[in-house]
């Protein structure tokens, strides 16, 4: 798969350099030569990626000689192609998507895990709550049909009969829950529940990760080729990320404010961003990261991922995770 990478990689780096130049990224401009690299985000700019904004804003990458461009994603911007073609050195993906891409022949490795816990939750209203998977039986759940494998995996992991759940295909919106069309929603911890909070609607969430659904999310992916030939850049990029996210954890409100400052055209609301930034922390940091540093994983967590991914129909090998870059970053 790597035979054609060279010309693209060259072109990609050129384009990234051009991008960094025109966007004028990096507030500090040290005299040392800067290597242009791009980080492909998985969605539009928001507090979801605020750790990276902090690293950029404080010049931590620039100090180490990296001119980093943060490339926003979008509904028509899959992460894998730019990473495969070398337009982006690193992309933000998730273990299930990465596994799918690898099955299709992409030479990816996961080199860091931002979200230790998968952000999928079952959101419900206090009057009719879903506190544990067994509560789902007899309830109507609003979700996109494409996510059915996710629910199936949850049911299998917890011995719940999925036929007892009434799946209602809905738009990705809290409205059907508020209108009483469904009893609960399959959504992300950081979006629909936040939207309901912002509208003053009391709600509760059951994090699927707390019930065995182990799929690393917001994972950093890079190609085997980059791991072999651009280790220095990868280490510097990930160092900045680690510093950025540690700073994020220290003050999520400041991170949210920076998000709006850096992306005034993204149409973001400060209060929503603050709430989202705060809600993200428990997903990203744990005893594991406290002990080993941001982005870390162990053989055990990988094994849990391999099992859950198996339930989702993805056969993966633990080799998909490559901790060597993080080990260099954290100096272990």
């Amino acid at each position: 798969m790597t035979k054609d990478l060279n010309r693209r990689t060259f072109l990609g780096t050129g384009a990234a350099a051009l991008g960094a130049g025109t966007l004028g990224l990096g507030s500090a401009r040290p005299a040392m030569a800067q290597t242009a690299v791009s980080l492909q985000l998985s969605w539009l700019h928001s507090a979801q990626f605020a750790g990276s904004y902090i690293a950029l804003d404080r010049g931590w990458w620039a100090e180490s000689g990296l001119a980093v461009s943060l490339l926003p994603g979008g509904p028509n911007a899959p992460v894998e192609p730019p990473v495969v073609s070398g337009t982006a050195l690193v992309g933000i993906s998730a273990a299930d998507y990465t596994a799918a891409a690898v099955a299709e022949g992409a030479p990816f490795k996961i080199i860091g895990v931002a979200m230790q816990k998968n952000p999928f939750v079952i959101a419900s209203l206090p009057a009719n709550p879903v506190n544990e998977p067994a509560d789902l039986v007899g309830k109507r759940i609003g979700m996109a049909l494409a996510n059915t494998p996710v629910l199936e995996a949850l049911c299998t992991l917890n011995g719940v009969d999925i036929d007892g759940i009434d799946i209602v295909p809905t738009q990705y919106s809290a409205q059907p829950l508020l209108a009483g069309e469904v009893d609960c929603l399959l959504c992300w911890e950081t979006d629909l529940p936040v939207a309901m909070d912002m509208q003053g609607v009391e709600n509760q969430t059951m994090l699927m990760a707390d019930h065995g659904y182990a799929v690393h999310s917001q994972t950093y992916i890079a190609t085997e080729d980059s791991l072999a030939n651009r280790r220095g850049d990868l280490v510097r990029l990930m160092s900045g990320e680690v510093r950025g996210w540690e700073a994020y954890r220290a003050d999520t409100d400041a991170a949210a404010r920076l998000t709006l400052e850096m992306h005034p055209d993204a149409g973001l609301d400060l209060e929503t961003q603050k709430l989202q930034a705060a809600r993200q922390v428990p997903l990203m940091f744990s005893e594991l990261t406290d002990a080993n540093g941001f982005g870390w994983w162990t053989d055990d967590t990988v094994a849990a991922n391999v099992e859950t991914l198996g339930l989702l129909g993805r056969t993966v090998s633990p080799d998909l995770w490559d901790r060597s870059i993080l080990e260099e970053v954290h100096g272990t």
């Binding site: 966007l23 539009l44 926003p72 994603g73 979008g74 509904p75 028509n76 973001l268």
Partner: peptide, 23 residues
């Protein structure tokens, strides 16, 4: 606008996605 869905920094398409997602 549709071109902005491929990962643009700003524009009406970006705001459209934001508005749809946030309902």
């Amino acid at each position: 606008m549709v071109g902005e869905f491929t990962g643009a920094q700003r524009g009406m398409g970006v705001l459209t996605v934001r508005a749809i997602r946030a309902l």
